[in-house]
Every structure is written in C-alpha cells, then in structure tokens.
C-alpha cells in the first residue's frame, strides 16, 4: 500500500475520531443533568446542595459556557497535545487513560489470543471430523457458550478456580496473574464465533476446485492445510480478531467490574454518570482513533495476505 494512501487513511481516522467524540459529547451535553450538580451530589451524598452553589461550581468548571465554546476550549488544548483534566479526580485525562489503557489492552490481547487458539484449533478439528461425534459436541458447546452471558461464566469461574480450587488470584491488582481468569472467561465466550467461522471456512475450501487440483497434484494434506486453506481463511479470522480487540478495549465493563480491574470502560462509564466532559471527550477521541487505526492495521494485514486485495489497490 502506498505511503500516501496510508497517510490519507490516518487523516480520515483523526477526522472520524473528532466527529465521534463531538457527537458523543453533544448527545451527553443535551441529556438531563448538570455536571456541576452531579459532581457535587457525588461529593456530598446529595444533602444540603443549594442551587447557587451549583451555579458557582459550574463557573469554576466552565460547564456553563455552552456546547460549542466548551468544545472549542477542548479542541484548542487537544491541538497542543493537552486533553485537559478530569473534573472528578483532578488528574490529567491522558494520565487517566494511559494507566487504564494498559489493563484494557492487555485484557483484550490476552482474550484474543485465547479465543484465537481455541477457535482455530477447535474449528479445524471440527471440520476434520465433520458430522462425527467430536464435531457435533463442539457445535453443541458453541451454541451453549454463545448463549451464556459472560458475567455468569465469570462468577462460575471465580467460584470454581478461586474459591474452590484456589488456583487463581481473585483481585485485579496482581498484574498479569489478575488477567488470566477474566481473559479465559472472555476468550471462551469469544471463541465460539471463531470456531464456527474457521469450521465453515475450511469446509468451503475443502470442496473448492483448487483443493481438488492440489490433491490431484499429490500435495500432502498438511501442506494443503498450511499453505493454502489456512491462508485463505486467515482473512476472516484477522477481521474477526481485530473487531474483538476493538470491542474489548472499551466494552469489557462487566468483566472489569466483577474482577475489579481498573480498565478504560469502567472509568468511562463512571465519568459519563457525572458528565465529566474532558474525560468523555478525551477517552472517546483516543478510543475512536484506536478503532480506526486497528482497522487500518487489519486492512494492511489483509493486503499482505491476499493478492486479490493488493491487485484491487493497485488498480485504483
């Protein structure tokens, strides 16, 4: 892919992230609740709060300036690489993001690795033993697994592996060890879709004409699998794994809550509850950017894997 195309895509990514963050901010701005009041309510437990005090606090926060002036302030700061400070904690938004992003990203990556390992291996075995006992069992487990809510599975895992077997730590503050159980839960939950995609992909390819030709040419089964079939289905796997990583970064709120993990999603939800605008704008901007960039990476990988895509880009 040409450097100019990549640069163009990055510019589009930044514009998209700005648009998404502004839309989210605008929607929240017009939703019920004054940030100053919500924050003071949280601080004081809601008692004794006079409206004059709320007004004064709104002035301190700058939330009484209106939709566009507030966005303009944020935008000017953002251009200077400053995402502002959180109303609630007083800490810089970038600091708040980076300390949580590490947890969320690690969780998302570990989850994806687990679901990838389970999904690809089980999908391949399931295709190999098509309509045999193993295949039927795998499909049944997949159907059940897809129906089970992840929070329920999390509580069951916690009960079995932490309380009964004492194999894993319960707390979310023990670094890598804390991520094992939650990523296993989410990895298992996410693996079902992957198993199905891999199984269907392999079966479709097995009956394709090029595979018959390969067999006729005397290529071994393992070589057919590794060099051709697996490569052909890798595109859909890459796309699905990328989407999983993207949705997991900000979307594993329930799991973060249950396992006490300080992740991005949890913090963002709490900030939305008190309308902590700098955090909302900053987090959504960075997360949108991450999503668009991850999608770009996914496209680049597809470009490297699939000559048809390279051809399409070349023709354009």
């Amino acid at each position: 892919m040409k450097a100019a195309t990549i640069l163009k895509r990055i510019i589009v990514a930044i514009l998209t992230a700005l648009f998404v963050s502004f839309t989210a901010y605008a929607l929240l701005y017009f939703s019920p609740g004054d940030p100053a009041e919500l924050l003071l309510m949280e601080m004081t437990g809601g008692s004794g709060l006079q409206m004059s005090v709320v007004k004064e606090y709104a002035e301190i926060l700058g939330t009484n300036k209106g939709l566009l002036p507030m966005y303009k302030n944020w935008f000017v700061k953002m251009i200077h690489m400053d995402l502002g400070t959180s109303y609630r904690t007083g800490r810089p938004v970038w600091y708040e993001f980076k300390i949580r992003f590490a947890t969320s990203l690690s969780l998302a990556v570990m989850t994806s690795v687990i679901s990838l390992v389970i999904g690809v291996s089980m999908g391949m075995l399931s295709a190999k033993y098509k309509n045999k006992f193993f295949d039927k069992l795998t499909r049944m487990i997949c159907a059940i697994n897809m129906s089970i809510p992840s929070f329920w599975l999390a509580i069951v895992f916690m009960w079995v592996f932490v309380i009964k077997l004492r194999l894993a730590p319960m707390s979310g503050d023990m670094g890598f060890r804390s991520l094992i159980l939650p990523s296993c839960v989410m990895g298992l939950t996410g693996s079902s879709g992957l198993i199905r995609i891999v199984r269907i992909g392999i079966l479709e390819n097995l009956s394709a004409e090029y595979v018959v030709t390969l067999r006729a040419k005397g290529l071994s089964e393992s070589a057919r699998f590794r060099k051709h079939i697996l490569r052909n289905i890798s595109l859909s796997i890459v796309t699905m794994v990328t989407q999983n990583v993207v949705s997991l970064i900000g979307g594993s709120i329930i799991i973060e809550n249950i396992f006490g993990l300080p992740g991005v999603g949890n913090y963002l939800i709490r900030s939305i509850q008190v309308k902590d605008f700098p955090v909302i704008l900053g987090f959504i901007f960075i997360m949108s950017l991450t999503v668009v960039i991850l999608n770009l990476i996914s496209e680049l990988v597809s470009y490297a894997l699939d000559p048809r895509i390279r051809m399409e880009v070349y023709e354009k």
Binding site: V162, N257, I258, G260
Partner: peptide
Amino acid sequence: KVIPDIPTRVMYLENKE
C-alpha cells in the same frame, strides 16, 4: 480494594480476600 460489583465484593468477603 475497589470492587464495584456487589456480588463480587460479597464473594471476596466470604473468601476472606
């Protein structure tokens, strides 16, 4: 230790975590 989810907090307590 911050444990936002009530059932999890209870489980932590029952488990003496």
